[in-house]
């Protein structure tokens, strides 16, 4: 269950944890920190976590949010898990491309595509 003050919507589908952001802007550093902590707790709750993060509601994100995503990716990797990103707005995808982070993440157009990609 997500916490009462959560900035995330979390649900399970089979062995996969799906995370969606509530905020359209992921800019506020206090929020970014709490998002990072909340997702870290989800990752640490299991071994080999399968995590899908959807950006369907997100219009803006900052480089601090990118930093948190990198930390999340490293934690998933450390627990031999799998991370997928989906529904990234073309403008935000461009931020991933500029920073070359599109090569570091497994990014899918839709939630369905991302779900199918888990091994």
């Amino acid at each position: 269950m997500a916490q009462a003050d959560s900035r995330l919507r979390v649900r399970r589908q089979d062995s996969i944890t799906l995370v969606e952001f509530i905020d359209r802007n992921i800019l506020d550093e206090a929020n970014i920190q709490s998002i990072g902590e909340e997702i870290s707790a989800l990752i640490e709750a299991e071994s080999g976590p399968k995590l899908l993060i959807s950006f369907s509601n997100v219009d803006h994100l900052s480089s601090a949010a990118l930093g948190t995503l990198i930390t999340i990716r490293n934690k998933v990797r450390d627990r031999s898990g799998q991370l997928r990103l989906a529904n990234i707005d073309p403008q935000i995808y461009e931020v991933f491309v500029i920073t070359r982070l599109h090569k570091m993440f497994s990014i899918h157009e839709t939630t369905d595509d991302a779900l199918k990609s888990f091994e």
Binding site: S63, A64, G67, I70, N74, V95, I98, T99, M104
Partner: peptide
Amino acid sequence: TMDENIEQPSGRGIML
């Protein structure tokens, strides 16, 4: 964007 820095969580603001 260099390989040795790509996993750093910060340092992307100015380049953006």
